[in-house]
C-alpha cells in the first residue's frame, strides 16, 4: 500500500517540476528531514486538487472509459454470451465485418437516414429560429410549442408514426390515395422507409435544435445589424453575412451532437418495423441501421465479440464524420476574414 503511494508520488514528480519552472532547486531533497506535519501539508498542496476532481474521473473511468476499452478487448475474441472460455481471434472479427454484406447494407442505411434527417433538420431549425427571433406575440408560447415534440416519449412517437406510415391502413397512404397518388409500401421500399424514419427524427429534434440556435441568435449584438442596415444591407444579406457566420460555434455544436445521435439511430427503426421486436430492420434489412445490427449480433445471435467489433467501427466512424462535419461547418459559416 505505502509502496504504491510512493511510486505514484515519484512518477508525478517530473510533471510537477516542469510546471513549477526549471530554475528552482529540487524541493524533494531538503536540507533537513521534514517533520510528519510538514510532509502532510506538502501532500495536501500537491495531491488535494487531484482528489477534488477525482470523483468525475473515477466515474468516467468506471462507466465510460472501462466499457470502451473492454469492448475493444472483447472484440478480439469469439465471445458468446455466457461463454467461460472465449477464443482469441485477433482482428478476425474486423476482417469478417468488412466482408459482411449486411454490415455495408446497414452502413448505407445509417448514412442515408442520417443525411435525410440531419440536413433538413438543421436548415429548418435555423429558419425556425430566425422566425422565432422576429417580434412575435406570446414568444414563450411559440418557443414551448416547437419544443413539444421533444417532450413526447420516443416510444409513443414510434408507435404513432409506424401507424401513420402503415402500408395497408396507414393515414398517409390513405391521403395519397385521396389526392390520386399511388400507395407506397413504406416497409418494403428501402428509400421510402428511410424517409419515414427520417421524418420521425426530424419531427422530434427540429424544435430542440431551433431553440439552441435561437439562443445563439439572441446573443448577437444588435449594433452589427444596425450598422449593416445603415450600409443598405437587405434582410437576406444580413442573415447570410451576419447571422450565419456569428452562429458558427453553435452550429458546430448542433452538427456534432446530431452526428453523434444520428449515426447511432436505433429506437426509431426498431419501432418502425411492422413486426414488433424484430431486429432485421424490415423484411430484407431495408432499414437496418448499424446500431440495430450491433444489437442483433449481441442479443439475438449472442455473438458479443462481433457486436463489440461493430461498436468500435461505429465509434471510429462517428469520430471521423464528426470531424468532417466540423470542418465543413467551419467553412460554410466562416466569418469571412479570409476573403
Amino acid at each position: 500500500m505505502s509502496e504504491a503511494t510512493l511510486d505514484v508520488g515519484e512518477r508525478s514528480e517530473p510533471a510537477h517540476r516542469a510546471s513549477a519552472g526549471s530554475g528552482e532547486p529540487d524541493r524533494r531533497q531538503p536540507r533537513s528531514r521534514p517533520t510528519f506535519r510538514q510532509r502532510l501539508s506538502q501532500w495536501d498542496v500537491k495531491y488535494s486538487p487531484y482528489l477534488y476532481i477525482a470523483p468525475f474521473f473515477i466515474l468516467f473511468g468506471v462507466v465510460g472509459l472501462f466499457p470502451l476499452l473492454y469492448t475493444a478487448y472483447v472484440s478480439l475474441y469469439d465471445w458468446e454470451l455466457a461463454d467461460d472460455t472465449p477464443t482469441f481471434l485477433g482482428l478476425e472479427n474486423y476482417v469478417t465485418l468488412f466482408g459482411d454484406a449486411q454490415f455495408w447494407n446497414a452502413l448505407v442505411n445509417t448514412v442515408s437516414i442520417f443525411v435525410l434527417s440531419s440536413v433538413p433538420q438543421l436548415v429548418i431549425a435555423v429558419f425556425l429560429a430566425a422566425l422565432l427571433n422576429t417580434k412575435l406575440r406570446a414568444p414563450t408560447g411559440w418557443r414551448v410549442a416547437v419544443l413539444l415534440p421533444y417532450v413526447v416519449s420516443l416510444v409513443a412517437v414510434g408507435l404513432i408514426f409506424s401507424n401513420l406510415f402503415g402500408s395497408n391502413f396507414g393515414l398517409i397512404n390513405s391521403l395519397f390515395e385521396m389526392v390520386g397518388l399511388d400507395r407506397i409500401d413504406w416497409q418494403a421500399n428501402r428509400f421510402a422507409s428511410h424517409i419515414a424514419i427520417a421524418t420521425m427524427v426530424n419531427w422530434r429534434w427540429t424544435g430542440y435544435n431551433a431553440l439552441i440556435v435561437l439562443a445563439a441568435m439572441q446573443a448577437i449584438p444588435k449594433d452589427i445589424y444596425e450598422a449593416a442596415l445603415v450600409d443598405g444591407a437587405k434582410a437576406v444579406r444580413r442573415f447570410f453575412s451576419i447571422t450565419l457566420p456569428l452562429l458558427r460555434p453553435t452550429l458546430i455544436f448542433v452538427v456534432v451532437t446530431s452526428t453523434i445521435g444520428g449515426l447511432q439511430i436505433f429506437t426509431e427503426p426498431k419501432l418502425f418495423d411492422a413486426r414488433p421486436g424484430l431486429n432485421t430492420g424490415g423484411s430484407s434489412g431495408q432499414f437496418q441501421t448499424i446500431t440495430l445490427y450491433m444489437y442483433q449480433s449481441a442479443f439475438e445471435n449472442l455473438d458479443f465479440g462481433y457486436a463489440s467489433a461493430i461498436a468500435w467501427v461505429l465509434f471510429v466512424l462517428i469520430l471521423a464524420i464528426a470531424m468532417i462535419n466540423f470542418v465543413i461547418t467551419r467553412r460554410l459559416a466562416s466569418t469571412g476574414e479570409d476573403r
Binding site: L159, S162, N163, G166, S167, N168, F169, G170, Q187, D273, A274, R275, P276, G277
Partner: peptide, 13 residues
C-alpha cells in the same frame, strides 16, 4: 393479406 403478424396492421386486419 400480407399483414405482418403481431403488428398494428395485423390487428386492424
Amino acid at each position: 393479406a400480407k399483414l405482418v403478424a403481431w403488428g398494428p396492421e395485423w390487428n386492424t386486419g
